[in-house]
C-alpha cells in the first residue's frame, strides 16, 4: 500500500501536477458528476456560466492573496476593499463623467495603493499581518461609502456608453448565448502568475521570505522591498477583482464585501498554499477556487438553499486550515 502510494507519487504526470492538486481535480470531477446526476437543471449550460460569474472575483483575490500567504502573511482587507474600489470607480464615472477605461485604471490603482500601505506597515513596523489588514478591512468598509456619499454603485450596463467593459468577461452572441470570455483571461493570468512565482526574482524572493526571512537578509537581498511587493501584487489583484465584480454584477452596495476574502483565502489554502508560508501554487489556488465555486453554485441545485453558503464557507475554511496545520506539523 505504502509502496503503491509512493510509486503513484513518482509517476511523472502525477509529479508534474502535484499529488494535492490531483486529489482536488478528482474531487472536482466527482462533485461535478454528482451534481449532474442529482439535478436536471444543473446540467444546463447556464450553470457553467453561473459558476464562472461567481468565480471571477473570488479567483482574482485568491491569486493575489497567494503571494502574501507564501510570505507567511495574509490579507483580510480584500473583500471590503474590492467593494470600496468598485463603488468609487463607478462614482467617478457617474459623477465626474470619467471615461470607463480611466475608471478601470483608478480602481486598480486604489487596490495597489491599499496593498502598498498594508505591505509597508507590515514589513516596517512588523505588526502581525492579520491585525494590520483587519484595520484596513474596517477602514475600507466605511471608506467606500464615505467618499461617495453612500452612493450605490452601478457601472455602465446594457446599451449605455462604456458598457463595453463587460464584454471583457462575457460576450453575448446574436442568438443570446453567453460566452464566458473571462475564463480565458483567468487561465491566462494563472499562467502568467505561475511564471512570475516560479521563474522571476519577485516570486523567488517572496518564497524565500516565507521560508527563512533571516537567511534571505543575510544573503544581502532587500527583504523589505520584496515583502511589500507581495502585498502590492495582492492589492493589484484585488483591484482586478473589483473590476470583475463590477463586470458581472449590476449593483454594488457600499459597506458590503466582508467575508469575500475568506473564500479567496480558503481557495489558496485548499490549493496547497501553506498558512505558515514558504510554499504555494497559483494553479492550486485556481483549482481550489474552482472547487469552492462548484460547491457554492452546485449545492442550491440539490436543495441546499443560498442561506447555507456562509456555513459552507466557514466549514471549508476550518477544514482547509486544520488539514494545513496537520500536514505542516508532520514535517518538522
Amino acid at each position: 500500500m505504502e509502496k503503491q502510494k509512493k510509486s503513484l507519487a513518482s509517476n511523472p504526470i502525477v509529479r508534474a501536477i502535484g499529488v494535492q492538486r490531483l486529489v482536488i481535480l478528482i474531487v472536482l470531477v466527482v462533485l461535478y458528476l454528482f451534481f449532474y446526476w442529482r439535478s436536471v437543471p444543473f446540467r444546463r449550460y447556464t450553470t457553467l456560466v453561473q459558476i464562472c460569474n461567481f468565480m471571477y472575483y473570488i479567483l482574482l483575490m485568491a491569486i493575489g492573496v497567494t503571494f502574501p500567504l507564501i510570505t507567511g502573511g495574509n490579507d483580510l482587507s480584500m473583500g471590503t476593499g474590492l467593494i470600496c474600489y468598485s463603488v468609487i470607480g463607478s462614482y467617478l464615472i457617474r459623477m465626474y463623467n470619467m471615461p470607463v477605461w480611466a475608471a478601470l485604471i483608478c480602481t486598480i490603482a486604489m487596490g495597489v495603493l491599499m496593498g502598498t500601505i498594508n505591505g509597508v506597515i507590515i514589513a516596517k513596523i512588523e505588526i502581525p499581518p492579520f491585525i494590520m489588514t483587519l484595520s484596513t478591512m474596517m477602514f475600507c468598509r466605511g471608506m467606500g461609502a464615505v467618499l461617495t456619499n453612500n452612493f450605490s454603485g452601478t457601472w455602465p450596463d446594457g446599451s449605455q456608453a462604456g458598457a463595453w467593459f463587460r464584454s471583457i468577461f462575457r460576450i453575448v452572441t446574436p442568438n443570446k448565448t453567453i460566452i464566458p470570455l473571462g475564463m480565458l483571461w483567468m487561465i491566462l493570468l494563472v499562467i502568467i502568475m505561475t511564471f512570475i512565482l516560479n521563474h522571476t526574482r519577485v516570486g523567488r524572493y517572496i518564497i524565500a521570505i516565507g521560508s527563512n526571512k533571516e537567511a534571505l537578509k543575510l544573503s544581502g537581498v532587500n527583504v523589505f522591498k520584496w515583502h511589500v511587493f507581495a502585498y502590492m501584487i495582492c492589492g493589484f489583484f484585488t483591484g482586478l477583482a473589483a473590476i470583475a465584480y463590477a463586470g458581472t454584477f449590476s449593483n454594488i452596495t457600499p459597506g458590503t464585501g466582508a467575508g469575500f476574502e475568506l473564500d479567496a483565502i480558503g481557495s489558496a489554502i485548499i490549493g496547497g498554499t501553506a498558512m505558515t508560508g514558504g510554499s504555494g501554487s497559483v494553479v492550486g489556488t485556481f483549482l481550489g477556487c474552482l472547487l469552492i465555486s462548484l460547491l457554492k453554485t452546485g449545492l442550491p441545485f440539490i436543495g441546499l438553499q443560498a442561506n447555507w453558503q456562509q456555513i459552507i464557507t466557514g466549514g471549508i475554511l476550518l477544514a482547509a486550515v486544520t488539514i494545513d496545520m496537520m500536514r505542516n506539523r508532520k514535517r518538522p
Binding site: 524565500a208 521560508s211 527563512n212 537567511a215 534571505l216 537581498v221
Partner: peptide, 20 residues
Amino acid sequence: LNMMGHLTVAQNIFIGREPK
C-alpha cells in the same frame, strides 16, 4: 544551517545573485 528549505539546492546557492 542558513537555508531556505522550500527552495531547490541551486536556488539556495545562488540566492540574491540569480543569473537572468
